[in-house]
């Protein structure tokens, strides 16, 4: 069998906001079914790196490939890219004027041209997956933060992405609500979903990561399997996981 190329590749990516170098030659790759956790202090560039993958930020130089597509190309088909990549944000960002079902149905209907009845069925299936079957016709404001975040995950999953990006999705939640969201992500990992996760939850990172990238001052400071979280090679990572305990 031919060896599969990774789904996501960052190759010497540079990105500055004005004089501030946010990404300073970042390289890593994510294979199919891999779960890569990006950790690092605030301002280390991990969220920016994640946002570059879905081209919410344009990079200054380097290359990013996602599902065989060159993301940094000027003529990239953004809509095709975003059908392959699902992204979930810290602040959920459900659409407040639509019910949960309508939130989930919107993209399948308007982007993929799915029939409404089929899309509603899909919404029900996706909500069942995140344990929210009874919230189909509720509005986002009627849900707790954890439920909203799970609904946001269901909304992304409904587009059947090949890669899921999670950008500090539990940072706005208390520990109990965090747990229910993390359980959903763990179930996705068990299903073989390819994921890139930015998180501050060290316990969660240890439990779910196949690979870990530790970012420090815009660079990949240390990278490896999940074992580097327990036996870090650099003093910076040792200090970082030490404070995270």
């Amino acid at each position: 069998m031919m060896q599969e190329s990774p789904l996501v590749v960052l190759d010497r990516v540079y990105k500055s906001f004005g004089a501030l170098k946010v990404l300073d030659g970042v390289s890593f790759s994510v294979g199919r079914g891999d779960v890569l956790v990006l950790i690092g202090r605030s301002g280390s560039g991990k969220s920016t790196a994640l946002r570059c993958i879905d081209r919410f930020e344009k990079i200054d130089s380097g290359e990013i490939h996602v599902c065989g597509r060159r993301v940094d190309a000027p003529d990239i088909d953004l809509r095709a890219l975003r059908q392959d990549v699902g992204i979930v944000f810290q602040s959920y960002n459900l659409f407040p004027h639509l019910t949960i079902a309508q939130n989930i149905m919107l993209a399948p209907v308007s982007v993929k041209g799915m029939h409404k009845a089929a899309a509603r069925e899909l919404a029900a299936t996706m909500l069942a997956k995140v344990g929210l079957s009874e919230k189909l016709d509720a509005y986002p404001e009627q849900l707790s933060g954890g439920q909203q975040q799970r609904a946001a995950i269901a909304r992304s999953l409904a587009m059947q992405p090949k890669v899921m990006l999670f950008d500090e999705v539990t940072s706005a939640l208390d520990p109990q609500l965090t747990g229910e969201v993390l359980k959903v992500i763990e179930a996705l990992a068990a299903d073989g979903m390819t994921m890139v996760i930015v998180t501050h939850e060290m316990g969660f990172a240890r439990g779910i990561a196949r690979h870990v990238v530790f970012m420090h001052e815009g660079k990949v400071h240390e990278a490896g399997t999940a074992s580097i979280l327990t036996t870090p090679a650099t003093p910076e990572l040792a200090q970082f996981v030490g404070t995270g305990l």
């Binding site: 919410f56 809509r79 982007v111």
Partner: peptide, 12 residues
């Protein structure tokens, strides 16, 4: 972020 969420879902 509402724009970004819609963008992330592939809406034109």
């Amino acid at each position: 972020p509402q724009w970004e969420a819609a963008e992330g879902l592939g809406l034109s």
